[in-house]
Design a protein around this nucleic acid. Sequence first.
DNA 1: TATGAATGAGACTTCATTCAT
DNA 2: AATGAATGAAGTCTCATTCAT
Lengths: 208, 208, 208, 208
Amino acid sequence: MPKISKAQRDSRREQILEAALACFSEEGFHQTGMADIVGRSGMSHGAVYLYFRGKDDIIEALADDRHRSEAILNSAAQQADDPIARLRALVRAYARALIDPDGEARRRVGVHGWAEALRNPRVRARVVEGIDIPRALIVGLVERAQGAGRLSNELSADAVARAFVALFQGFLLQVAWGEAIDVDSCVAVVDRMLGGLEPGEARAEPPE
Amino acid sequence: MPKISKAQRDSRREQILEAALACFSEEGFHQTGMADIVGRSGMSHGAVYLYFRGKDDIIEALADDRHRSEAILNSAAQQADDPIARLRALVRAYARALIDPDGEARRRVGVHGWAEALRNPRVRARVVEGIDIPRALIVGLVERAQGAGRLSNELSADAVARAFVALFQGFLLQVAWGEAIDVDSCVAVVDRMLGGLEPGEARAEPPE
Amino acid sequence: MPKISKAQRDSRREQILEAALACFSEEGFHQTGMADIVGRSGMSHGAVYLYFRGKDDIIEALADDRHRSEAILNSAAQQADDPIARLRALVRAYARALIDPDGEARRRVGVHGWAEALRNPRVRARVVEGIDIPRALIVGLVERAQGAGRLSNELSADAVARAFVALFQGFLLQVAWGEAIDVDSCVAVVDRMLGGLEPGEARAEPPE
Amino acid sequence: MPKISKAQRDSRREQILEAALACFSEEGFHQTGMADIVGRSGMSHGAVYLYFRGKDDIIEALADDRHRSEAILNSAAQQADDPIARLRALVRAYARALIDPDGEARRRVGVHGWAEALRNPRVRARVVEGIDIPRALIVGLVERAQGAGRLSNELSADAVARAFVALFQGFLLQVAWGEAIDVDSCVAVVDRMLGGLEPGEARAEPPE
DNA sequence: TATGAATGAGACTTCATTCAT
DNA sequence: AATGAATGAAGTCTCATTCAT
């Protein structure tokens, strides 16, 4: 029954999503009107509703960042089997994504998505899914590293993964705000932090 | 000439802000209506406008989180002059704030504020100010620690501070989402990460 | 029972009316808020309601321009019994009032009153009363002049009076708008026009 | 691309303007609510905003009375080249317009427009333009008549034009108020007044 | 499929008036 | 007599969505 091919349909959807991404990036989800998206997409009001159920549907589609997560993760995939090296590669992949000028709109929309995830369960599901991918990966790497005696067994693999995710999130936020960040210096810091997780006496004692 | 005292006035303002905090926490700034705030505050529609210029004014007032920043920082103040110990104390203070059940609404509104800061310059100024306070403090501590040979001189103090801020932000985000986080484990991880910043050979070499 | 003297009371009323006149002159009746009047009068909201029933009451008080009408008429009063001379004096009196800088606010409020008279019967009654005074006077003068053979008997005294009133009103409107009017030249024209009403062959035949 | 033709669009606009004219005529600009206009136009609330930017836009559209001015002027156009005859024809055309029952709402809105012109520059521009058309025409006729020795050279053409405009305005005001005016008698008076402007000794001396 | 005019609930804000003090 | 904080109805305008064409 479809009168246009799936390829055409996908192309139209993409056209709308691109327009929406630009709008949401500038004004957020709720300050962007459908009229803005319609105008920027070059389509008509009615047409948009042929490809999306409504505004919320578009928001959800853009909140789903698994593609980006996977792209970053893939760019960090390497033959090396060493879990620590994989972690370092992951840090570098995220750092590269952070400074990619083409990703600015996505980064900004990502932050809007974090807020939206607080109130919209469907958005939340998608956002969390996008984050669970790297987190699960990191948990696996950490556990392997611990098994190999390369990371302290005293640490919770989940907490380590969350700490790295937190670093990625916090840096992304700061970059999204346009703050002047020297990403290379930050990578160096994170590298050192990772080094601190290796087995052995903690060099400085935490306050009892 | 005022018919009510400053204390009464402040109390009314606080009453409105509390209502707004609860509403914004649940629905975000732009999905919360003035009617919601009015209803929850128990005041009349017009009365709110005696205390705030409009909805934006309320948003800005709540985006200004310097009080909270300062409260956390104060709770970490201690006689000890040791910069590393101060940093560890700071981490613990933020961790405590993170699990304070009374702070949930503020944390959630904080995340909404991050998104709003992307498009609203006035909100942005307030949000950034609230973050610059701890960041500047950390930069100072790091520089002192570096001067005392307690932290590697090869690291950028700004990058270290940003990394800690990123950790705080990322953990706050995850906690705001209600994720199951064992904060103590995370503190242990951060402690180790901090240890990794101490002088000496980085234990593991970063990939070429 | 009044706790303040009538003089004090009148002085307060006048204070309010002056403030209202200035406000109404600038923004019209309906774009002026009570807050504007209260602010300009230096009194409190509540106080204004001790002296006036409400905003409409103030509007009505200011729409009543009999005082001004009478002042102008008095300034044109003269012993001379000649009705034509009295008419000419009247024209001059209005012309003087037109260029009085102190009368600007009243002139502007007068125009607002014309519009308000279209919908507010109480305002209308007051505005019309203020105009009926000079009109009745002119009708009387015209009738006396006609009786004395000084003005054409073929003309309706009422129509002549209305024509003069129309001239005053139209010139007032143009002056209120701040148009560049040479009032002396206009007086000269009106003088000539008055001359045209004298008995005798109409110099030019109207188209049949 | 427009889904409705220009004619349809104009018809909708006209529909709104007609409703607004009726409302404004009864209650003035600022006492008429958009709901009144919407209700009377038979359209929906939102639809009105497809045709006008807002209430002010509607007010401005109705304040622009050049059409009416031109219609009156055209109805006074005649082959006769005689400037005095043209002036008399103009007077009659305005008189006819004054008693046209279909023009009542426009006359009333016209008076509201005079008041609004005092505070709203855009309205003012439109109102003044509508008046400048006949005034410029009259100035031209007067100058031609003076050149032909048909009107006294001692008179300012501008003042004469302003006097006639004032007469039209004042009579319009009185008619708008619903006063009992015998327009024919008034035309007779204005004819005589015009006669008084002809060259020759002013019949009566103005007071020294 | 595609269009864009139309809908109408609901958004934020103002303001004349009141009344406890 | 005087104050000014409080009220809440009413104001103008927006916007996600629909549906006749």
